[in-house]
Protein backbone atom coordinates (compact mmCIF):
# COMPACT_ATOMS: atom_id res chain seq x y z
CA UNK A 1 0.00 0.00 0.00
CA UNK A 2 1.84 3.08 -1.15
CA UNK A 3 -0.62 5.90 -1.41
CA UNK A 4 0.81 9.40 -1.23
CA UNK A 5 -2.24 10.68 0.55
CA UNK A 6 -2.05 8.00 3.20
CA UNK A 7 1.69 8.50 3.67
CA UNK A 8 1.39 12.23 4.06
CA UNK A 9 -1.60 11.95 6.35
CA UNK A 10 0.12 9.34 8.46
CA UNK A 11 3.17 11.54 8.90
CA UNK A 12 1.04 14.26 10.47
CA UNK A 13 -1.42 12.00 12.21
CA UNK A 14 1.07 9.90 14.07
CA UNK A 15 2.44 12.56 16.46
CA UNK A 16 -1.08 13.87 16.96
CA UNK A 17 -2.40 10.44 17.80
CA UNK A 18 0.45 9.83 20.20
CA UNK A 19 -0.13 13.18 21.89
CA UNK A 20 -3.81 12.42 22.09
CA UNK A 21 -3.08 9.04 23.65
CA UNK A 22 -0.92 10.60 26.37
CA UNK A 23 -3.61 13.22 26.89
CA UNK A 24 -6.15 10.42 27.37
CA UNK A 25 -3.89 8.75 29.90
CA UNK A 26 -3.34 11.99 31.81
CA UNK A 27 -6.95 13.09 32.06
CA UNK A 28 -8.31 9.59 32.55
CA UNK A 29 -8.73 9.91 36.27
CA UNK A 30 -11.33 12.63 35.97
CA UNK A 31 -12.61 12.62 32.39
CA UNK A 32 -13.21 9.88 29.84
CA UNK A 33 -9.93 8.24 28.90
CA UNK A 34 -7.37 6.22 30.82
CA UNK A 35 -4.43 3.96 30.24
CA UNK A 36 -6.31 1.28 28.36
CA UNK A 37 -7.92 3.60 25.82
CA UNK A 38 -4.71 5.63 25.60
CA UNK A 39 -2.61 2.57 24.89
CA UNK A 40 -4.99 1.47 22.17
CA UNK A 41 -4.92 4.90 20.52
CA UNK A 42 -1.13 4.91 20.60
CA UNK A 43 -1.18 1.46 18.98
CA UNK A 44 -3.34 2.80 16.14
CA UNK A 45 -0.67 5.43 15.53
CA UNK A 46 1.90 2.72 14.90
CA UNK A 47 -0.52 0.68 12.81
CA UNK A 48 -1.13 3.74 10.66
CA UNK A 49 2.59 4.18 9.98
CA UNK A 50 2.93 0.46 9.36
CA UNK A 51 0.19 0.60 6.75
CA UNK A 52 1.60 3.59 4.95
CA UNK A 53 5.35 2.93 5.10
CA UNK A 54 5.65 -0.70 6.20
CA UNK A 55 6.14 -2.37 9.54
CA UNK A 56 9.89 -1.78 9.54
CA UNK A 57 9.30 1.99 9.44
CA UNK A 58 6.85 1.69 12.30
CA UNK A 59 9.47 -0.14 14.34
CA UNK A 60 12.07 2.49 13.54
CA UNK A 61 9.81 5.23 14.84
CA UNK A 62 10.16 3.84 18.36
CA UNK A 63 13.61 3.81 20.00
CA UNK A 64 12.91 0.54 21.82
CA UNK A 65 11.24 -2.63 20.61
CA UNK A 66 7.48 -2.77 21.10
CA UNK A 67 8.11 -6.09 22.77
CA UNK A 68 10.16 -4.41 25.54
CA UNK A 69 7.21 -2.15 26.36
CA UNK A 70 5.33 -5.11 27.81
CA UNK A 71 7.70 -5.89 30.70
CA UNK A 72 8.17 -2.15 31.26
CA UNK A 73 4.42 -1.72 31.59
CA UNK A 74 3.96 -4.72 33.84
CA UNK A 75 6.90 -3.47 35.89
CA UNK A 76 5.43 0.03 36.32
CA UNK A 77 2.08 -1.34 37.42
CA UNK A 78 3.66 -3.82 39.79
CA UNK A 79 5.93 -1.19 41.32
CA UNK A 80 2.99 1.13 41.87
CA UNK A 81 1.12 -1.77 43.43
CA UNK A 82 3.98 -2.54 45.81
CA UNK A 83 4.99 1.03 46.71
CA UNK A 84 2.43 1.33 49.54
CA UNK A 85 4.16 -1.58 51.26
CA UNK A 86 7.06 0.76 52.01
CA UNK A 87 4.72 2.82 54.12
CA UNK A 88 3.26 -0.24 55.78
CA UNK A 89 -0.01 0.03 53.84
CA UNK A 90 -1.65 -2.84 51.98
CA UNK A 91 -0.51 -3.24 48.37
CA UNK A 92 -2.44 -1.21 45.76
CA UNK A 93 -3.39 1.50 48.23
CA UNK A 94 -3.56 4.76 46.29
CA UNK A 95 -0.82 7.19 47.36
CA UNK A 96 -0.99 10.82 46.21
CA UNK A 97 1.49 13.62 46.14
CA UNK A 98 0.20 16.93 47.53
CA UNK A 99 -2.23 18.48 45.09
CA UNK A 100 -3.79 15.19 44.12
CA UNK A 101 -2.39 15.37 40.60
CA UNK A 102 0.29 12.72 40.75
CA UNK A 103 -0.08 9.44 42.53
CA UNK A 104 0.39 5.72 42.30
CA UNK A 105 -2.89 5.21 40.37
CA UNK A 106 -1.48 7.32 37.56
CA UNK A 107 1.72 5.29 37.62
CA UNK A 108 -0.40 2.16 37.53
CA UNK A 109 -2.36 3.51 34.58
CA UNK A 110 0.89 4.35 32.80
CA UNK A 111 1.82 0.70 33.21
CA UNK A 112 -1.49 -0.34 31.67
CA UNK A 113 -0.84 2.10 28.81
CA UNK A 114 2.59 0.67 28.08
CA UNK A 115 1.45 -2.94 28.33
CA UNK A 116 -1.53 -2.44 26.04
CA UNK A 117 0.54 -0.51 23.51
CA UNK A 118 3.28 -3.14 23.65
CA UNK A 119 0.93 -6.08 23.23
CA UNK A 120 -1.21 -4.66 20.45
CA UNK A 121 1.66 -3.14 18.48
CA UNK A 122 3.84 -6.26 18.83
CA UNK A 123 1.11 -8.60 17.65
CA UNK A 124 -0.11 -6.44 14.77
CA UNK A 125 3.38 -5.59 13.52
CA UNK A 126 4.40 -9.23 13.68
CA UNK A 127 1.33 -10.20 11.68
CA UNK A 128 2.07 -7.51 9.09
CA UNK A 129 5.64 -8.74 8.78
CA UNK A 130 4.20 -12.18 8.05
CA UNK A 131 2.17 -10.55 5.30
CA UNK A 132 5.07 -8.77 3.65
CA UNK A 133 7.56 -11.61 3.82
Amino acid sequence: MSSVILRTAARYMMPLLLLFSVFLLWRGHHEPGGGFAGGLVAATAFVLVAFSEGPAAARRSLPISTWTLIPIGLGLSSVSALLPLLQGLPPLTGLWLPGDKLGTPLLFDAGVYATVLGVVASVLLALMEEETS
Binding site: G28, H29, H30, E31, P32, G33, G34, G35, F36, G73, L74, S77, S78, A81, L92, G94, W96, D100, G103, P105, L106, F108, D109, G111, V112, T115, V116
Partner: peptide, 22 residues
Protein backbone atom coordinates in the same frame (compact mmCIF):
# COMPACT_ATOMS: atom_id res chain seq x y z
CA UNK B 1 -9.38 11.42 44.20
CA UNK B 2 -10.92 10.78 40.79
CA UNK B 3 -14.15 11.84 39.15
CA UNK B 4 -14.08 9.29 36.33
CA UNK B 5 -15.60 6.30 38.07
CA UNK B 6 -14.74 3.84 35.30
CA UNK B 7 -11.10 4.71 35.48
CA UNK B 8 -11.05 4.85 39.27
CA UNK B 9 -12.45 1.32 39.34
CA UNK B 10 -9.79 0.17 36.89
CA UNK B 11 -6.76 1.69 38.57
CA UNK B 12 -7.79 1.86 42.20
CA UNK B 13 -10.84 -0.01 43.51
CA UNK B 14 -10.29 -3.02 41.30
CA UNK B 15 -6.66 -2.50 40.43
CA UNK B 16 -5.78 -6.08 41.31
CA UNK B 17 -8.13 -7.28 38.55
CA UNK B 18 -6.49 -4.90 36.12
CA UNK B 19 -3.06 -6.12 37.10
CA UNK B 20 -4.23 -9.65 36.40
CA UNK B 21 -5.72 -8.62 33.08
CA UNK B 22 -2.60 -6.91 31.77
Amino acid sequence: HGRNIVNVILVDFRALDTLGEI
